[in-house]
Design a binder for these strands. Structure first.
Lengths: 149, 149
DNA sequence: TTAGATGCAAAGACTTTGCGCACTT
DNA sequence: AAGTGCGCAAAGTCTTTGCATCTAA
């Protein structure tokens, strides 16, 4: 398994190697994803892409992201009820999202090990650690709630 | 803590006791919720309500559900990326949703005990066990995936 | 009486789809 | 040359909001 972040060229090779075409729009999306530090919404990706290539449309970005997911180049997560966020596939991690302030905390996938085994044993269910964020209340919002009461 | 399911009258008392009005639409929503066995989407609730009172509009149902959440009468969960589901507040439980077939499995909240403590200790994060379903692959879909490869 | 609640319709947020043309291979 | 992929615009899904009217208390 590759642990380091892939380069733009490596990603485009994957695209080429799977009977898909390498287009300007795809190159630009790859560029944006490789440069990005964290998670980006489709809209953020679109904006960043359009800064480089104004003609690229949102629907194209969605289609490219869908293709990239099929090729295991990117994954997306739902951090709340808002837009999904995308990032390069790689180190799997989990997310916590505060229901109140919407802040997201990234956590190690290891936190899920015990639960994952339990669900596997009890229900044959294979947990996906990154696709959906766990919901709850962050420390700060919890303190605020207490102070208010 | 009340463990048994509340009656319609008890629910309406809660509404009365909080400076809100008891309307026909609210009575009907309560009736539907009390009768319902499992989780219902807002649309399912609306349909059921309209069978009894055709004039009640979807927006009213959403507003009533929102009010009922404030009063801790109902809770809603997001089982996937589709519509949220609502049910009477009461016994907390968790959900697993299969990313492939969208099937949902209800699980005991106890499964989350260890994880919950861990997140509390590590991040001060208080896990909400029912608000968002855990995502993954159910046993059947996993078998199908294996057979396909 | 009078403010909260409702019905209707429109808007909003996010994402997908249809179609004809362009660009990659 | 052939057909995938694209841009544009429209549609789709779920939910919220504005506003005039109605109604519970």
């Amino acid at each position: 398994m590759v642990q380091r972040a892939p380069t733009a060229e490596e990603i485009l090779s994957t695209v080429r190697g799977s009977d898909r075409r390498v287009t300007l729009a795809k190159r630009t999306v790859v560029e944006v994803l490789v440069r990005a530090r964290g998670h980006l919404t489709a809209e953020e990706i679109t904006s960043a892409v359009q800064r480089l290539r104004p003609e690229v449309s949102p629907s194209t970005v969605y289609r490219i992201l869908e293709e990239f997911e099929e090729l295991n180049i990117v994954v997306h997560s739902h951090l709340g009820q808002a837009a999904a966020v995308y990032h390069l596939a790689g180190a799997v991690h989990g997310h916590l999202t505060c229901e109140h302030c919407k802040q997201t905390i990234e956590i190690s996938a290891a936190h899920f090990d015990a639960l994952s085994k339990e669900l596997q044993k009890a229900y044959g269910f294979q947990l996906d650690r990154h696709h959906v964020a766990l919901s709850g209340t962050c420390a700060r919002c919890r303190d605020n709630q207490r102070a208010t009461r």
